[in-house]
Amino acid sequence: HPFYDRDEVHEIYRDWRKILDSYRPPRMAVAEAWVNPSSRRALYARPDELGQAFNFEYLQGGWDAEELRQIITDSLDTARAAGASATWVLSNHDVVRHTSRLMLPPGTDDNAWLLSGGHAPAVDEAAGLRRARAATLLMLALPGSSYVYQGEELGLPEVADLPFEVLQDPIWEQTGRVRKGRDGCRVPLPWTTTGPSYGFGAGGSWLPQPSGFAAYAVEAQDGVEGSTLELYRRALRLRRKLLEGEDLTWAPDAPPGVLHFARSAGWRCVANLSGTPVQLPPGEVLLASGPLEGGLLGADTTVWLA
């Protein structure tokens, strides 16, 4: 479209920045800029414009160590060149939740999967949650800003089997009922383990919640050691203490399928995406996304080490 990603819009955002900076404290903003080439996104994140931009390359990256390493490296370089902070995101209201998405075979058509009700192919929810937890610790260890989408802190999967008659996303009607839309990641999150809406409200939820949501409820996870909610809480508390600077140094001796990097504060992140256990590097374990046994870092597991 001739109006798409015009250079002239940046003059407008510079005016916005003046308004944002007039507040005390100054307000932040983030660009939702789907642009091609992706290097154009950094223009929106310049300090005299919006300051940050969602990193869609990272969101769309597969569960592949080399692919993610390249995306991370390029993202940091691009942000640095723009004088901006790098950003990271795993889920939002427009994509299949990463607990389910990261388990789909490469090349899977998300819409076809949703139209099948999540049965072709079927997704192992337990394995998906294990991978999602590992992805979370990897993301939160990266320099810059991380965005957390509502419900991912509970480990919610995509609700792929919503009946056609309850769909709310306009995409369903706009495409002649060809694309199922984004309702599966927008189903209201569960607060309690019982009730007609799992605590969402007395009037019920605007999209039906599956019965399995009870196990993911805040009430079921709050204060429970090892729960996904407590993993997020611990990771965010640690992140505030550990995360400083925009540096990241890749370990030169990481095994294939493993991402291993160090941060300037003296801690490291090791994520095993290889599919098989690997030797756990030496160091004090600060936090792990899953159990560590026999000096090994299991498949789909991430650990932070001092």
Rank of each mutant, 00 (worst) to 15 (best):
P2T: 10
R6I: 13
E8R: 13
H10M: 08
H10S: 06
I12P: 02
R14P: 08
D15G: 12
K18E: 14
I19C: 14
L20D: 01
L20I: 06
P25Y: 01
R27Y: 14
V30W: 04
E32P: 09
V35E: 06
L43C: 09
P47L: 06
D48H: 12
L50N: 04
L50V: 07
G51E: 00
Q52F: 12
F54G: 03
F54C: 00
L59A: 07
L59Y: 08
G62N: 10
D64E: 14
A65R: 01
E67C: 11
Q70F: 09
I72T: 01
D77F: 12
A79V: 05
A81T: 11
W88C: 00
W88F: 04
H93S: 04
H93K: 08
V95I: 11
T99F: 05
R101Q: 04
L102D: 07
L102P: 05
L104M: 07
L104E: 05
P105M: 11
P106I: 01
G107R: 06
G107L: 01
T108Y: 07
D110I: 14
D110Q: 12
N111M: 06
A112P: 09
L115C: 07
L115D: 01
G117Q: 06
G118L: 04
A120Q: 15
A126E: 14
R130T: 03
R133P: 02
A134W: 05
L137W: 00
L138D: 01
L140W: 03
L140H: 03
A141M: 05
P143E: 01
P143S: 11
G144E: 05
Y147F: 15
Y149E: 02
Y149C: 01
E153A: 02
L156Y: 06
L156G: 03
A160W: 00
D161R: 07
F164V: 13
Q168Y: 07
I171S: 08
I171Q: 07
W172S: 02
E173T: 14
T175F: 02
K180N: 08
G184S: 04
R186T: 08
P190R: 06
W191T: 04
T192C: 07
Y198R: 11
F200E: 09
G201A: 12
G203E: 14
G203I: 08
W206Y: 14
Q209D: 07
P210V: 02
G212F: 13
A214V: 10
Y216Q: 10
V218K: 08
Q221D: 08
D222R: 15
E225Q: 14
T228W: 02
L231P: 03
Y232F: 15
R234C: 12
R234Q: 15
A235R: 05
A235I: 10
R239G: 09
L243P: 02
E244K: 15
G245N: 10
D247S: 15
W250T: 06
D253A: 12
A254Y: 00
P256E: 15
V258E: 00
L259T: 01
L259S: 00
H260R: 05
R263T: 08
S264Y: 09
A265Y: 06
A265G: 13
W267R: 04
W267K: 03
C269I: 07
L273R: 03
Q279G: 14
Q279M: 12
P281N: 08
P281A: 10
P282V: 08
L287D: 03
S289A: 10
G294K: 10
G294W: 10
G298Q: 02
D300W: 03
D300E: 13
D300T: 07
V303S: 05
L305N: 02
